[in-house]
Amino acid sequence: MLLITCPWCGPRDETEYHYGGQAHVAHPEDPSALSDEQWAAYLFYRDNPKGLFRERWVHSGGCRKWFNAVRDTVSYEIVETYVGAPGGAR
């Protein structure tokens, strides 16, 4: 079981969290301006890298806050957790 550091609460067991998929995939400003292909890319397509991956987690069993993490998909090591943009404050 991973030990994940919530930026607000500190290290907690993985079971307190829910996974939220790839991070930094913003809802488009004006969806109606997008083609079906562009909308489908937002809706359905996500990266699946081997190695470091920026992803979202929510501390659902704790403070209920969303945050971002950098996780190594090979070792599962969570290298960093942060709020907001990459490099943002903890």
Binding site: P28, P31, S32, L34, D36, W39, A40, L43
Partner: peptide
């Protein structure tokens, strides 16, 4: 108005 999911109602 726009709302969550609206664009998807216009998919083929």
């Amino acid at each position: 108005k726009d709302f969550v999911g609206r664009r998807s109602h216009d998919r083929v």
